[in-house]
Amino acid sequence: MIRFRPNIVIESTTPFEEDCWKRAEIGGALFHLVKPCGRCSIVNVDPNTCKRGAEPLKTLASFRTQEKKILFGVNAILTGASVISVGDKVHLTTVA
């Protein structure tokens, strides 16, 4: 996970479930999930050794490429000011 530098991580049992989410309410904060996140090549750098490799983008590219972008996660916009904390309840709205 450290390679992807996530701001928020939501545990799920379904891979790439976030593709279907439209909104997330976390501890009272409302986020609009606006688009898939195209990843840059920095995720291929091992933060422990600073060495660049082909993974994980090589594997993701084999099944997560859209419009020449390799996708992982989603970009979200916070509506209003709020504070979230580890362990906050998450309520998701999915696309119908």
Rank of each mutant, 00 (worst) to 15 (best):
I10F: 02
I10G: 03
I10S: 01
I10K: 04
I10A: 05
E11W: 07
E11L: 15
S12M: 12
T13P: 12
T13R: 15
T14L: 15
F16L: 08
F16Y: 13
F16D: 08
E17R: 08
E17Q: 15
E18D: 14
E18K: 05
E18H: 04
D19M: 01
D19F: 00
D19N: 09
C20F: 13
C20Q: 14
W21H: 03
W21C: 06
K22I: 11
K22W: 02
K22T: 11
K22H: 07
R23Q: 15
R23L: 15
R23F: 15
R23V: 14
E25I: 15
E25F: 10
I26A: 05
I26H: 06
I26N: 01
G27A: 03
G27S: 05
G27T: 02
G27Q: 02
G28Q: 12
G28M: 07
A29S: 14
A29T: 10
L30D: 11
L30Q: 14
F31C: 08
F31N: 12
F31W: 10
F31E: 06
F31H: 08
H32M: 14
H32C: 11
L33H: 03
L33I: 11
L33G: 03
V34L: 09
V34S: 07
K35S: 08
K35D: 09
K35C: 06
P36M: 06
P36K: 12
P36Y: 01
P36V: 01
C37L: 09
C37S: 06
C37F: 00
C37P: 07
G38A: 10
R39C: 12
R39G: 08
R39N: 09
C40D: 09
C40T: 13
C40Q: 05
C40P: 06
S41C: 12
S41I: 14
S41E: 13
I42A: 13
I42V: 13
V43P: 04
N44S: 06
V45P: 10
D46E: 02
D46W: 04
P47T: 03
P47I: 02
P47G: 03
N48Q: 12
N48T: 11
N48V: 07
T49R: 07
C50G: 09
C50V: 09
C50P: 02
C50A: 14
C50I: 08
K51F: 08
R52Y: 07
G53C: 05
G53N: 04
G53T: 07
G53F: 02
G53D: 02
A54S: 13
A54T: 11
A54H: 12
E55M: 05
P56S: 13
P56F: 07
L57A: 06
L57F: 03
K58P: 01
K58G: 01
K58M: 08
T59Y: 09
L60H: 00
A61I: 00
A61T: 01
F63N: 10
F63A: 06
R64D: 03
R64F: 05
R64C: 04
T65C: 03
T65P: 00
Q66R: 11
Q66N: 11
Q66C: 06
E67V: 06
E67L: 09
E67Y: 07
E67P: 00
K68Y: 03
K68Q: 12
K68V: 00
K69W: 00
K69C: 00
K69V: 00
K69E: 07
L71G: 00
L71W: 00
F72S: 13
F72G: 09
G73V: 04
G73M: 03
G73H: 08
G73L: 01
V74G: 05
V74S: 05
V74D: 02
N75G: 02
N75F: 03
N75D: 02
